[in-house]
Amino acid sequence: MPEPVIELDRVRKDFPSRPPVRALADVSLRVDRGDYLAVVGPSGSGKSTLLNVLGLLDRPTSGSYRLDGTETTELADGARTRLRGGRIGFVFQSFHLLAHRSVVENVMLAEIYGEQARKGRRERALAALERVGLGHRVGFLPDRLSGGERQRAAIARALMGEPSLLLCDEPTGNLDSRNTEAVLDLFDELRGHGLTILVITHEQEVSERAARRVRITDGVLVEEA
């Protein structure tokens, strides 16, 4: 049996406040290669905390998180950063494209902190843009693109370096229904190529397209049938 991409074991996250807030209550989750998982839940349920823990942006208070078989909770800051850069592709609600850089430059940004050679970077970025259907927009500045195009550019950036996991935080939150549809179609297509996708959303439409759905309420994770 192959190693799962994500394996959470009784992950707990407490925030020290008065009274203390338990954002994640002994969450256990297993995501295998090629899974397409949607995490749904109302705001304040712990979705963002889960995303931060999964994205190695935050450490859990207790429990174990194995990413591609690597126990991450014991890792030092630098090693977590390298793992994050190499294994996880982030897709944000607000795209986070640099406004003064062209689309292809924004995509190329994904590689500058890694080990990849500079040579061929542009070609790899152009290939990623082709993959998301933005081959005709490479030289544009982000503000010349529609919302859907911007999100696709951001997905292309996340796809650079062949990540194990595409971690999407409300990827359609700023998009209208037509663009939402296009992005979701793209996710289906990427999953068809074997990519593991985890989408955090509160939109019904998005979660229904996923193969698996888990609901988080007050820090407790429940798998939905």
Binding site: L57, D77, R82, R84, G85, I88, H96, A110
Partner: peptide, 16 residues
């Protein structure tokens, strides 16, 4: 700040 966050998510270390 957002750009810094993005860069960190892309694997930038603090020293970068």
């Amino acid at each position: 700040v957002a750009e810094i966050g993005l860069r960190r998510s892309l694997g930038a270390a603090r020293r970068h």
